[in-house]
Every structure is written in C-alpha cells, then in structure tokens.
C-alpha cells in the first residue's frame, strides 16, 4: 500500500505543472525555446535547453545580467542514459545580497556528445569544460584548448561515466 501511495505521489509530482520562473518567463517572451525543469531544493530555476540552441540561449542570459558562470559541470544520468552538461549562472553586482541564480542543463546523447563551448561568453568555462571533456568525453566545440586536464593525455576512456571500467594495471591492483 505504502509503495503504491509513494508511486502515486511521485507520478503526481512528475505530472505536476512546473510553474515557470522569472528567468524562464523572460526567455519565453524573448522567444528562446527551452523547458523549465523542477526547481532544486534551494528554489533555483533549472532550464533545459537543446544543445544546438545553447549559444544564443547563453548569450541572452549573459545579456539579461548573468555575468558570472559560477560553476560548469557535467554528470552521467545513468547507464545508457544521457550525459548532462550543467551551467550555474549568477548575477554578480557590487554589494550583492542573495543574487539571482539560474541553472542550465543540456542533455547530450551518449554516442556523440558534442556541444558548443561557452568559453567565448564566460572565460571561466576554460578549465571546467576541459575537466568535463576529460571525465565524460563531452566535446566542447570551439574551445580554444580542449585536451585532458586531470588524466594523463594518453589515457583511454572517460573515467566518470557510469559504464567506465577501470584498467587492470599492475600499479592499480590492490596491494593485498
């Protein structure tokens, strides 16, 4: 019974209409197509964008005042699922108190994860996109220096993908 209730609750949550936030509304008004996802636990808007529209979308957000790319990261949605490139944006001003934030998520196919680089909008993306390339194999097109950041340059495979299998080097075998 409890499980069923839970299922019903989760179904209800999924099917619940997500109210578009301020940024989402503005973007819709300006004609930038996207999908508003459920807000996170802090109430920050999450916008889902198609990779081919990321650049104009990001440019618009930069113009809207999101001048600071606080964090660029990526994650693997699960075995066989998409890879996700995430951008955390903040409006940075003098004497900012609780500045506006927004998060963009771009879902990429596992087979050919390519996405335009936002380096030319926010220079902070430089090393963070390199790390995402290093760990997940997401190709950031137009990045000025896209090569591995943490792993050795001749490493094979993308270590943080769910389907990655660690190599069985002698040096990596357990000591006992």
């Amino acid at each position: 019974m409890a499980d069923k209730e839970k299922e019903n609750a989760s179904d209800a949550a999924e099917s619940a209409i997500i109210e578009a936030g301020e940024v989402s509304t503005w973007l819709t008004e300006q004609g930038f197509g996207h999908e508003a996802m459920e807000r996170d636990h802090l109430g920050i808007e999450i916008l889902k964008v198609e990779p081919q529209f990321l650049l104009p979308f990001a440019t618009a957000l930069y113009a809207y005042g999101f001048n600071y790319l606080r964090c660029q990261s990526a994650y693997d949605a699960g075995p066989g699922k998409e890879l996700v490139s995430v951008y955390d944006l903040t409006k940075l001003t003098d004497d900012a108190d609780a500045p506006a934030e927004v998060r963009i998520k771009v879902f990429l196919p596992r087979e050919n994860p390519t996405i335009p680089s936002v380096y030319w909008i926010w220079k902070a993306a430089d090393w963070q996109e390199r790390e995402c390339y290093d760990m997940f194999g997401i190709t950031y097109e137009g990045h000025p220096n896209l090569k591995r950041l943490l792993m050795p340059e001749d490493w094979e495979g993308w270590p943080l993908r769910k389907d990655y299998i660690s190599p069985d080097f002698y040096e990596l075998q357990d000591a006992y």
Partner: peptide, 29 residues
C-alpha cells in the same frame, strides 16, 4: 592564437560575434 577569437564555424553558428550579440541583447534586456 586560438584564444583571440572564436572559430569561424562557431561565429557563423551564432550569427555574429558574441560580444556584439551580448551588447545588443543587453540593450534589449
């Protein structure tokens, strides 16, 4: 050299240089 300006393909994809686009959008915003 790769840091001077975005590659041509990227600039074409965006329609115009990023900075200009940003300025124009800023005015719009």
């Amino acid at each position: 050299g790769t840091r001077d300006m975005p590659p041509k393909e990227l600039m074409q994809a965006m329609g115009m240089p990023v900075e200009k686009t940003a300025d124009a959008k800023l005015e719009g915003a």
